[in-house]
Amino acid sequence: MTSTIEAPRSPYSRAPRSRGVNWEKWGWIYMRVSGVVLVVLIFGHLFVNLMVGEGVSALNFAFVAGKLTTPFWMVWDVLMLWLALIHGGNGMRTLVNDYATQRLTRGILKSAILAAVVILIVLGTLVVFTFDPCPAGSPADLLPSFCPAS
């Protein structure tokens, strides 16, 4: 009678990857590429909103209206929105994969993350591109100075 003994300490065999996109690799690359861009975008965002002038004390509707009617800041904010939410959502997915041990828990948590990311990306993008800096019927002292007097 013969029996085969596996060579000790041989690496366990993984099923060879079937064809298709290696999404984990692209996620890994995305975290690094978006991370570098986000450092610039978020540091700029924090500097302009919290450091210039009176910082957080100067923030109000008129300030945001001034930014969201400037194409430069619209592009800046939308880029930040998409890059940061996907970066954060993918990071949270990593934590769920690491710490949630039940398959069902993982599924629920990752679905919740995906839903939050998708809903907030849609909401934020709509807000930036449908924004009205001079809503009718609002008190003039709350509006930016470029709004026509009503």
Partner: peptide
């Protein structure tokens, strides 16, 4: 993102 989205609701 939710608090900033309030610019679409009203200045107040």
């Amino acid at each position: 993102i939710l608090d900033t989205a309030l610019v679409r609701v009203s200045p107040e």
